[in-house]
Design a protein around this nucleic acid. Structure first.
Lengths: 201, 201
DNA sequence: ACCTCATCTGGACATTGGCAAGATAAAGGT
DNA sequence: ACCTTTATCTTGCCAATGTCCAGATGAGGT
């Protein structure tokens, strides 16, 4: 409908800002992230974003929220691709999806897990991040036959799996796992699957 | 010797700046870290640091370097406290030292592992971080009887152990492991030791 | 046609990192 | 002792940033 720009009243500025924010984030990194730059990218005044996001934190919270839903999608996509009912294979698929997302959107990944600039009190963000956590909990529930919310041992499995895949992803993104970086994709995935299998005996 | 301040020529400004930088880092976090604030804290002009560190990155690199040596100390301290020769107990002690450091200096920890503002090309920093990695490699060498640099399987053990402890520490610091945060110290340490033992079967 | 109000603009202010020119004092050579 | 050199620190400046504010604009309801 409002396809042409009318100078004023952009039409869907909120979405445009979110899109540009992701580009800027990927370009400059979180720590050099600039709200004015985002506005410039969209071609709008420097204080236009204020009417859609309270402040920079607000925009980043919204961006992280979108990140978490895509993050969940990445895990689910791997599970669909695996086309199996085996609980252990499904868990491994989630782990690989976790890595897919981290490698595909490293800046977003760091925003979601390694930044102080995001306010996790934001209810939308809380919902999205909780949903991602629940997905992993469900994988463990399927494997153990008990919900981690009922069984401490199963919850320990969740923590173990999560710590493992997150540490692997974070160190890989930070360029610390040199030997792993040298591997090609199938080799790296096999390597990770081998490590990941250890934490849920 | 130069105990009293002489307005000009602070005496040991470099060390004073590093000390203040750590305080500021702990106060404001990395992403709001301000060089001018550090200078103000020391009571010196805003561009005095330029003569001791090329720029903000330079100061942060020096700070991270100091962090890595303390990080290594934390792991070694735990091993001394364990007072054992058992390879597995020594490895666990390193993991607990890893956590000690992360919990004791969370801001420094995030600077070292989760920031883009540190230049790892800095030779001093490279030396310090490599030394910390080598410590873990040595733990695995003692456990397996082979150096990870010679044996791929042993290197895989290093990656596994590192990913596990790092993921656990990072998620804990980010406030994501709610059930673990609820535990008291001994319980949390026992819990971690249990998880950590899984990765090196 | 008019009015209301969300949306967007432009200017202001304090703060930041980095640069350049100058002030200060310690060190060293004569 | 004196003068020069050099390292150290200060002051003043610039562009850029986040946030606030008053005002311009126009879309949608009445």
């Amino acid at each position: 409908m409002t396809e042409e720009k009318s100078a004023y009243h952009h039409g869907d500025l909120r979405a445009a800002l979110l899109g540009a924010a992701e580009t800027v984030l990927a370009d400059t990194g979180i720590e050099a992230f600039s709200l004015r730059r985002v506005a410039r990218e969209v071609g709008v005044s420097h204080s236009a974003p204020a009417h859609h996001f309270a402040d920079t934190q607000g925009l980043l919270a919204a961006l992280a929220t979108e990140g978490f839903t895509r993050f969940l999608n990445a895990m689910q996509a791997r599970q669909r691709a695996a086309a199996t009912q085996d609980a252990r294979a499904l868990l491994t698929a989630s782990g690989l999806g976790y890595l897919d997302f981290a490698q595909g959107s490293p800046a977003l990944f760091q925003l979601m897990f390694g930044s102080e600039r995001v306010d996790f009190c934001d209810p939308m963000l809380d919902r999205a991040s909780t949903a991602a956590f629940d997905h992993l909990a469900q994988d463990i529930a399927r494997l153990r036959g008990v919900s981690p919310y009922d069984d401490p041992a199963a919850m320990a499995d969740v923590m173990a799996a999560w710590s493992m895949v997150h540490g692997f992803a974070a160190l890989l993104m930070a360029g610390r796992l040199k030997p792993v970086q040298a591997m090609d994709t199938p080799e790296r995935e096999a390597f990770f699957a081998m490590l990941f299998a250890r934490v849920t005996p």
